[in-house]
Simulated scan of single mutants.
Amino acid sequence: MSHCTICPRDAPDGQHVCPLHADEVRAWLTELPRQARLLAAFVAPAGRPAQGRLGGTGRAHAPLPVDLRVLTLLGPGRADALGGDDDGTVPILAWLGAWAGHIAYTYPSVARDAHGTAHVQPCDQAWPRQGQEWPRRRETITGWCIWLTRYLPYALTLSDVGDLHQQLGDLIHRVRDLTHAVPHRQEMAAPCPECDAAGLVRTDGQWGISCTVCGHHLEPQAYDDHAAAVLKAYQAKNEPAA
C-alpha cells in the first residue's frame, strides 16, 4: 500500500490517491456534462435552468445579455494542466482537453518496427470518442469526460493526479455556485465502523460511502455487511431474556 497524496489514508498499490478521492474524480467527471447543459440554459436572456434552484447566480441579467462567467466557462480557450492555479477564467472544454493531452502524452504507446523491435514512447494525441462523431474528432465536454473516465485507472498512477483532483473539484464547485444544482447526500443508518459516529453518507454519483467525521471510506458491499452486523448485535443485545 502507498499513501494518498491528498489525505493521510492509504492508496492502492501503484496509485497515488485513496479510493475516496478516486471516487470523487469519477463522480465529478460524470456530473460535469450535466452541469454544462444547465450552464447553457443561462446563455439566453431570461433563460430558465432545466433543474436547480431558480434565481441561480449564473442567470443572464441587464445590462449584459448573458453572464460573462457562463460565457467564460462554456467558451473557447486554452489551458495548461500543470500550469498553476486556475483564476476562474479557464473554459471547461479547454481544461478537459489539457488534462486529456497530458495523460495521453504520458501514456506509454508500444509499437514494433520492421525488425520486430518494440518501441515504447508517449502517445501523440488524445481524442474524445463519442458515438458517430468518431473519427471526426469533434471535441465536446461530454466526449472529454468519457475519455478521462476511461483513462482514470491509468491517471491514478500518475504522481500529479492530486492536481487533477484539486482542479476538477474547484471547477465543479465553481459551476455549482452558478447552477445551484448540488448532488443529494443520503445519510446512512449504521454508524461509522472506524469512529462509531453517525456520519456515513452516500452522495449521488459516487460509488462508495464515506464518513463526514473521520473520512473513512466503504464500498457498498462492505457497508451492507457492516450494517447487518450492527443490526444483529443490536437485536442480540435487546432480545428479551428467556
Score class of each variant (00 low, 15 high):
W99I: 03
P108W: 05
G116Y: 02
P33F: 03
G83V: 04
A241K: 12
R202M: 03
G97E: 12
L73N: 02
V230T: 04
W95K: 05
T5E: 10
T57H: 12
Q132A: 15
E24A: 12
R112K: 13
T117V: 14
V213L: 01
T30G: 15
A27S: 14
G75L: 08
D85S: 11
H173K: 13
Q166H: 12
I103Y: 01
D10I: 06
G88V: 07
P108H: 05
D67I: 06
A155P: 08
L54S: 15
R176Q: 15
R138P: 00
D225N: 07
L82C: 04
A114M: 07
A62C: 04
I209K: 01
P122K: 06
Q130R: 13
D80Q: 12
W99P: 01
A50H: 14
I209A: 05
D204Y: 01
R37D: 14
A111T: 15
V213R: 13
D224T: 11
R202D: 04
L29V: 09
P33V: 08
P12R: 10
A60V: 11
P49L: 11
A126D: 01
G75S: 08
V120Q: 11
T140S: 15
L64Q: 14
R112W: 10
R150I: 08
T140F: 03
L93N: 02
R174N: 10
G75W: 08
C4R: 02
H184L: 11
F42I: 01
D13F: 11
Q186N: 03
Y107I: 00
L93Y: 05
A155Y: 04
Q51N: 09
R9D: 13
E24I: 09
S109L: 13
I146V: 15
Y107S: 12
D204T: 14
Q221P: 00
D177N: 12
L29Q: 05
E24F: 12
W134Q: 08
T117C: 01
L39D: 04
D225F: 08
E187L: 10
E219Q: 13
C18D: 11
I141Q: 00
P240R: 11
W207E: 14
L164S: 06
I141D: 00
K237E: 15
G131L: 07
D85P: 08
K232M: 08
L82I: 03
A46G: 11
A44L: 15
P76F: 04
T179R: 07
H3L: 13
R137L: 09
E239K: 14
H216T: 09
D85F: 05
A236G: 12
I141C: 07
H3F: 09
G58Q: 07
L74N: 07
V120D: 05
L74S: 06
R78T: 14
W95T: 02
E239R: 15
C195S: 03
D86V: 06
R174Y: 07
H102S: 09
R34P: 00
I6A: 09
A155G: 08
R112A: 14
C211D: 02
R185H: 10
W95C: 00
C4L: 05
P49I: 10
V175L: 03
G56V: 09
L156D: 04
F42N: 09
G116D: 01
R129E: 12
L82Q: 10
P128Y: 02
G169E: 09
P153G: 08
W134E: 10
L74Y: 08
D163Q: 13
L156S: 06
P128V: 06
G56K: 07
P135W: 07
G162W: 06
C192L: 05
A100D: 11
D224P: 00
